[in-house]
Amino acid sequence: MDFDFTTFPVLETERLTLRALNLEDTKAIFGLRTNKEVNEFIDRKTPKNLSEARAFIDLISNQAANNKGVFWVIEAKNNHQLLGTIGLRNFEDEEDYAEIGYEIHPDYQDRGYMSEAFKEILKFGFKEMNLKTFEAFTHKNNNASKALLEKHSFVFQPERTDEGFVNNVIYKLTGNN
């Protein structure tokens, strides 16, 4: 799989623009990645300051520049507010595979934004990237995330475990559903 994200794939839905993360997003990314509710089910290092948030943005930008991942800001069209993020990474050639990851600020949950973004990313992955398999790793108690995955035809993989993350469960989507 040879991807080229040097020209970033900006995607649009009815209410959203999915665009590249940039340094102007530093405060919003810091707020999202340090939010207690967002992090309740995510095992990750949270940024301590804006400098660490900028370092995260640099990391994400480098992944895209090196075609190792693609990470979109979910932005509302009506007010250009950063609502959350969604991305694809951990590509595997043999299986035409990518892992999908996502987060949304609590102020914008339960409004269908993530589902709208999810649908567009899956369409992009299947049609533009020719992916055949998506996997998502989510906390076993994150019912909203599990419901989102099931809504988009992901299937729970009870026999599999996420090495190093004992509380995570794995969902998989295969084929162009």
Rank of each mutant, 00 (worst) to 15 (best):
V169I: 15
L122Y: 03
F124Q: 08
D4I: 07
K27T: 12
E37L: 12
F156R: 14
D43L: 08
L18W: 04
V155W: 10
K45I: 01
D107E: 15
L11V: 12
F124R: 00
D58C: 12
L83F: 07
Q81M: 09
R15D: 13
T161V: 11
T133P: 00
D25I: 03
R19F: 07
N79P: 11
A28N: 08
A55Y: 11
D110A: 06
I104M: 08
F156M: 10
L21N: 07
L18F: 04
G69D: 02
A20N: 07
I100T: 12
S61F: 14
L122D: 01
D96G: 09
E94C: 06
N90T: 04
E92Q: 06
Y171N: 06
I170N: 01
D107A: 15
F56P: 00
N168M: 03
Q157M: 02
V166C: 09
D162N: 09
T34W: 00
P158R: 00
T7L: 14
L50T: 14
S153Q: 09
Y97A: 05
E52N: 07
E120Y: 11
A20C: 11
E163T: 04
N168D: 11
A55E: 15
I170T: 04
E40P: 03
G31F: 01
T17Q: 08
T6P: 00
E135S: 05
F91Q: 05
G175A: 14
L50K: 14
R111C: 04
A55Q: 15
E24R: 13
A55C: 12
L148F: 09
G125F: 02
A98T: 07
F137A: 04
E120P: 04
E24C: 11
E128H: 15
A20P: 06
V155Y: 10
N141C: 10
N78H: 12
D93C: 10
D107V: 15
L50F: 09
H80L: 13
K36S: 02
K140W: 07
S153F: 06
N62H: 14
N79V: 11
N141H: 09
E99G: 02
I86Q: 02
R15T: 11
N176H: 13
K140Y: 12
F137T: 12
T17A: 12
K119Y: 04
W72C: 03
I170Y: 00
M129R: 02
F137R: 12
E75D: 06
N22G: 13
A53S: 14
K48Q: 15
H80G: 11
L82Y: 03
L131H: 01
I100V: 14
V155T: 15
V38Y: 07
V169C: 12
H105V: 08
A28G: 05
L149K: 04
F8H: 12
I121P: 00
F126G: 03
V10L: 12
A117T: 08
I60W: 00
K77F: 09
L148E: 09
A20F: 04
N143S: 14
F118R: 03
L50Q: 13
